[in-house]
Design a protein around this nucleic acid. Sequence first.
DNA 1: CTCCATCAGTACCGTACGGTACGGTTCGCA
DNA 2: TGCGAACCGTACCGTACGGTACTGATGGAG
Lengths: 215, 215
Amino acid sequence: MQGVLESRGASAASGLTERQGAVLEQALRLLVDGGEKALTTAGIARAANCSKESLYKWFGDRDGLLSAMISYQASKVRTLDVSAGALDAEGLRRHLVAFAKDLLDVLAGDVSLALNRLAIGQASREGSKLGHMLQERGRRQIGRRAGALLEAGRKAGLLVFDDAEEAYGALYGLVVSDWHLRMLLGEEPGEMKKGFSRRAERAVDAFLSLYGKKG
Amino acid sequence: MQGVLESRGASAASGLTERQGAVLEQALRLLVDGGEKALTTAGIARAANCSKESLYKWFGDRDGLLSAMISYQASKVRTLDVSAGALDAEGLRRHLVAFAKDLLDVLAGDVSLALNRLAIGQASREGSKLGHMLQERGRRQIGRRAGALLEAGRKAGLLVFDDAEEAYGALYGLVVSDWHLRMLLGEEPGEMKKGFSRRAERAVDAFLSLYGKKG
DNA sequence: CTCCATCAGTACCGTACGGTACGGTTCGCA
DNA sequence: TGCGAACCGTACCGTACGGTACTGATGGAG
C-alpha cells in the first residue's frame, strides 16, 4: 500500500507512514471509546486490521505506541497564529473570547480528555514521559498563541502586565477554573459545553478588568 | 482486637473498625508509593498483614476497596470553619490568603494526587463513582469553607458579587490555574511548592481587585 | 475443656495481557 | 518466473492479577 517514500498524507508529518497513522487513529478511537483498559495490543491490531508483530516492529513496545499516539494527535492540532494586524480594544476582546472558547472546546474534546487521562494514569510510573510530552506539545502550543495575543495587546497599549506568564496563568485560571479536572473525573461534558460561550466572555471580562489598560 | 462496639479511633467515623482503617491506611501508602498498578489485592494483604479473604469479606471487591479508600481519606480531612467574628479588609485578605495556601497545599499532597490519579484513571469506566465521590467529598468540603468566607466578606460589605459560585470559581482559577493538572501529569511538586505563598498572595490580590468593595 | 467465630497464610483457578514466533499471502522488482 | 521484503492472522508462552477455597492458629464464651 505504501513504500519507502510515503505519500505525505495528513499524518505523515512525524516520519510515520500513512498505514501507521491509520493504526494510531484506530488506537485513539479505542482509547476514547473504552479507556485505557480497552487499549490492548490485540485490540488495536484487531481494530486496525494489522498484526501485533507489525505493532511491535513499528513502535517498539506498548509505551512507544502510547508515545506515538500523543505525538500523532499533537501533530494534527495546528494552532492558527493571531493576525498581526492593528488591534483596537474591541478586537482584542473578540480575539481573547475566541481563544478562551477554543481552549474550553479543546480541553473538553474526547481525544484530549482520553489522552490526559492516559498520561495521568501513567504519571506515577517513574520515567514515564507521557505527561511531559502532553505538557510540552499541548500547553506550549496553545500557550504560544495566547502569548502572542497578549504581547500584541501590550504592544497596542491595550494590556498592562510585567510577567506574560503570570498574565497567561490568570487568563487560563479564569477561563478554565476547575472545569478541566471535573471533566477528567467523569462529569458529563455535554451539560457543561452549553455554557462555554458565556463562560469565555465572563472570564475575558474579568481578565481585562485585571490587565486592561485602565485597570 | 475489637468487637461490635469499636473503640472509636481516628478512623472509625465511617463505620469501619480500626483494623479495617489500618488496612486502608496501608493501601493508601501503597497507592502513593507505586501508583495504581502497585495497588494489587495481594500487595495490600501483604502490606497490611491480612488475608485476601478478609479484604473481600470487608470491602466486597476491588472497587469497593477503592471507594472505601476515598471515603476513608475524606473522613480524615476536617475543614476548619471560618471564625464568624467581625471582618475588616485586612482580616479578609489574610483569611483568603490562608485559604488559598491551604488549597494549594492540599492539592499538592501525595495522597490527594494519588487519589485523583486513581479516580481519573477509572473515570472512563461506566458507572465508576470514584470521580463523583472525590468531587463530592473533596470539592464540596473545601468549597463550603470558601463559600462561608466569601459570604462573610459580603455580609461585611467587603466583597461584591451576585453569584457566589462564580466568585468562588474565579478565586479557584486564579489560585490554581493549571498547576493541579501539571502536578497530576507528573511535574515535580517540590519545585512548585516553594512558590505557593507568593502565588496565594498574588491570586488573592487579583481576586480582591475583581470582587473587592471598590471594584 | 470444648465449641465456635475470626483471621492469617497459602494454594489454587480462570482469565487476560504483553510480547514472540510461525505459516501463508501479497506485491514490488529483476 | 522466481526472489525477497513486508505484512496479516493466529497460535503460543510466561506472567500477573482478581477472586475463591482450604488449613491452621488464636482467643473469647459457656
